[in-house]
Design a protein around this nucleic acid. Structure first.
Lengths: 193, 193
DNA sequence: TTCATTTCTTAACATAGGTCAAGTGTGTGA
DNA sequence: TCACACACTTGACCTATGTTAAGAAATGAA
């Protein structure tokens, strides 16, 4: 693992919990470096999600395909975020989702078994992930409220304000799906500005 | 704290983590019993949410009021579930939400400070809440997907199947709002059956 | 540099669900 | 036990967004 990658990961852990020197080594040895090319899948339906991934650099989406064959994106994640199918990962049962790279991406991954072991060896990480999921849950509820009660126009503007970088790196088709609308609608919304 | 209440709370902790005898005592002494009458508020906007509540028995909703004065319910919780405004609780900043009792309810509450202390005294609880938030997050994403991609009819049917008890105890106006539709639409959906 | 593919836009039309307004029951507090 | 608020329904009409279909613009591989 090179310097920039491990300092990045540890930096994000240390933002929320104290990690000792020896713990740092245990953590670093539990993660594996991996990379994935644009348009390749990290996970496909029916496979069990074996890892949680920290995105060192890159961009990925997770989506499912409904019974009419339409793709529905529920997450787009970029640098310094985590991506996985937690439902499959924690139950260790087959996933319903795809995770696909939208850019060539560098990742750090940890397996289910290693993470369980790490929680025991470095109790601070249990705290880190408690806080991470807590925040993720609060964000998901906020996004749920927006989806239920804000118009497509307002959701677009919220996203434009809160994640402007996505509009630089992600095709609008995907952003439309993430917003819960069609590409045609997004196009109309953008035209009105 | 009476026997049925404390066994209930500990039962739910023990479902996911090991708790020793002395730890049980620490936990029980950190929670306070409280109760609330139907239609009373546990939390109102601008107040900081001081507690997380475990619902021993009862039913509560949390909602916000938009700038047109319309109420939007984002959670309805009944027996053996937790309720709070986590955003306000964890940041200890003013809330945007109401939490209101839909039935006379018995609760166990723990304050922010006590919980932080408890995480240190009983590390297993850090694990318990990590797992709790993890599951809550996965559920919130599932609900988000349903809201974005399923029709109102399908969402109604999913809810009818997964939370049939709510239909026995909660007025349809509130269920409609929770589903993200108007009471009129819910009425029409039910008529078609 | 060119062709093919992907991405984005536009327009005409369709529809789910919202809005407004007017009911009918029904439970509960005076 | 009366009345009044609350819960729910119904109908007419409206609007945001979806659907279908076509083509323009941008991107990238040969």
């Amino acid at each position: 693992m090179n310097i920039s990658e491990d300092t990045k990961l540890l930096y994000y852990f240390k933002k929320w919990v104290n990690i000792t020197e020896p713990e740092e080594q245990i953590i670093l040895s539990s993660f594996e470096e991996t990379s994935i090319k644009k348009k390749k899948d990290l996970l496909v339906p029916e496979d069990t999600c074996k890892y949680i991934y920290f995105i060192v650099k890159g961009c990925l989406r997770s989506y499912f395909v409904d019974n009419k064959g339409v793709e529905h994106i529920y997450q787009i994640r970029m640098d310094n975020n985590w991506i996985s199918d937690l439902e499959s990962f924690f139950s260790q049962r087959p996933s319903k989702y795809y995770i696909e790279a939208l850019e060539d991406s560098q990742l750090l991954r940890i397996s289910f078994e290693k993470l369980e072991q790490l929680y025991i060896e470095v109790p601070g990480l249990e705290r880190y992930f408690r806080i991470l999921f807590q925040k993720a849950y609060v964000n998901a509820l906020q996004r749920l409220n927006d989806t239920m009660w804000e118009s497509a126009v307002d959701r677009y503007e919220i996203m434009l304000k809160e994640q402007p970088d996505m509009f630089q790196r992600v095709p609008l088709v995907y952003i439309a799906s993430y917003l819960g609308i069609t590409p045609e609608s997004l196009s109309r919304i953008r035209k009105k500005k």
